[in-house]
Design a binder for these strands. Structure first.
Lengths: 337, 337
DNA sequence: TTGTACGCGTTATCAT
DNA sequence: ATGATAACGCGTACAA
């Protein structure tokens, strides 16, 4: 293993100078810097990140905590985080909480000390824990907002608005909402948005787990109402709705329209292809990384302490993708019951 | 930050004794150990992993390199790796290579120095690079085997056998195979297995990218042959086949049977539900971690150097999950052309 | 069994 | 601009 000392010796300077030449844009004589860089390349020197971390207190690692890696929703975010982190030359420590708030707290506590900052996806833990764990520039929230903590989320309200606008233009007048988990921050935002439309009657199918089975149950509830369209919490639930409607002999979209959220890859593969609100998940992940490094930077230097920039709270735009699961509300549909 | 020195002071012992009391089962007086442990708990002491890493040369981190986090196949493996690592109190550094062999090599090189060992999923890089990068107990291969490197994979041949056995029992005599990437180690194993059956004619649809679009093309090829069933490289390809058959007005499974590989979550949600060879991906991830820590352990102590255990090469069992996309080969099917 | 002292590789401080 | 020196927190050889 070739160390900084070796490089310094080869370049005929002190380790301190070698460090400066390699590390930062600090003041180093151009000529000396040249010699150091050449010596380093010559010897194949690579800095020891552990030693640097011990001395500087910053490992360069980012933490990513999410409820379920196998959920394509979080996988997409993770992918965005990965990509951006790689561009920035930083590594990512990933932890899966299995959707368990206790594991979540545990994992964050443990991870926090190994990384410079942690990106927390759809955290289920209560606000007070959240603030103590990732407050003070040590974390970024995704899909959740909290005073004093930077966050990036999607414009849930606009997604709902677009979906309802689309349905209304198709002649629908009564729409059912198959909501998500009661503890979901995103679901709460969407529910608010549902209340804000006029010209449409909304049937609340209640909260539920974000899985296909919940969609199966929701479909029957929707059939029992006068709704001609169902908006689901996410694509998985929407697929459950689709499946049950088929089982019941109800044709989609002729007799019932269905809209999902997320636009996971499978959404385009089901029959009929799912109309859904596409969320820019990769971009969410990328932005989260950017906010995280910005927050780190804001900690370090003696930046204007009087007016510290308030934590950024970003909201990314969403877009309705119209596929085959929505159509005009037909007389046949209304005549169904 | 409370350090070991603080604990030692509080317990009235030297840092060395405190270290011994906390670290290993080394010789420490029972009474002193008690005092140290209590002081540590009292002060909320937590070892600094970075300092420990610098001293010991081992970070406790595991590296996980995979082609695509958004691919449910790899996401499942990652999930298994996560879970097992957590049980063992180890963290996981994940890197996504975007299916690019160049990025893969780059990422592995860079990650290798930050972790104790790296788990390499479905590596696309050539064998010689592989051996230099992860040889000598520094890595574990998943879905690829190589002399001298521990690995864990699934029993591809048996999966093919089960699928063909199932089809033969249903009366099929000619089966098409929509293979995967030419560079895929798994695909090569499956191809071998196809050649080893008798009583069945196999139509090779050639290699292709493991995406739905490839399945669409493969479906047309299959229809142009005398095959009454299609086996696909993975579920995504199988879903593409399903989609195109529907477009062509060919009923599944009545006129054509379809079998996938992997059993991703979406496989049960398509119409008809996909019969597929389920791979124990979570278990694969877990075993990979176990092999990795075993390999580390084999490096450390002065274990029998004469007979070093040959690198483990594990193969996990697979299971055909029969759903709705396979049925008896019918006269109607044969009369189609 | 316990304490002292040193080193892991790097960077920050303080002189010069 | 550069060099000597200390320190980050921990583990361990050596001495007691």
């Amino acid at each position: 293993m070739v160390t900084l000392k070796d490089v310094a010796a080869a370049a005929g300077v002190s380790p301190a100078t070698a460090s400066r030449a390699l590390s930062g844009p600090t003041s180093v004589a151009t000529v000396g810097r040249e010699r150091v860089l050449r010596a380093a390349a010559q010897l194949g020197y690579r800095v020891n990140p552990v030693a640097r971390a011990l001395r500087s207190g910053r490992s360069g690692h980012l933490g990513l905590v999410l409820p379920d890696l196998a959920n394509p929703f979080f996988a997409s975010i993770a992918k965005g985080v990965q990509a951006r982190a790689r561009e920035l030359g930083r590594n990512v420590l990933v932890a899966d909480t299995e959707e368990d708030p206790l594991i979540e707290l545990d994992v964050v506590t443990q991870l926090r000390e190994q990384v410079d900052g942690v990106i927390l996806c759809s955290p289920r833990m209560p606000a007070e824990h959240l603030r103590t764990e990732v407050g003070a520039g040590r974390g970024v929230l995704v899909n959740r907002e909290l005073d004093g903590v930077p966050s990036v989320s999607v414009d849930n309200a606009d997604g709902v608005r677009q979906a309802l606008e689309h349905l209304r233009a198709l002649g629908h007048r009564t729409v059912a909402y198959a909501g998500g988990p009661a503890s979901s921050w995103s679901d709460a935002r969407r529910r608010d948005a549902f209340g804000a439309v006029d010209g449409l009657t909304v049937v609340d199918l209640g909260p539920g787990r974000p899985v296909a089975a919940r969609g199966v149950a929701a479909a029957d509830l929707a059939l029992g109402s006068s709704a001609t369209a169902v908006v689901a919490y996410n694509d998985l639930v929407a697929m459950g709705v689709l499946e049950q409607l088929r089982t019941r002999g109800v044709r989609v979209p002729e007799q019932m329209s269905v809209i999902g959220f997320d636009d996971v890859p499978a959404a385009a593969l089901v029959n009929p292809p799912l109309t859904t609100v596409a969320l820019p998940l990769r971009a969410v992940g990328r932005r989260a990384v950017d906010l995280m490094v910005a927050a780190e930077a804001a900690i370090q230097p003696g930046a204007a302490p009087a007016g510290p920039t308030p934590p950024a709270r970003e909201q990314l735009g969403v877009e309705l993708v119209v596929r085959g699961s929505t159509a005009h509300a037909s007389p046949a549909a209304r005549g169904r019951e």
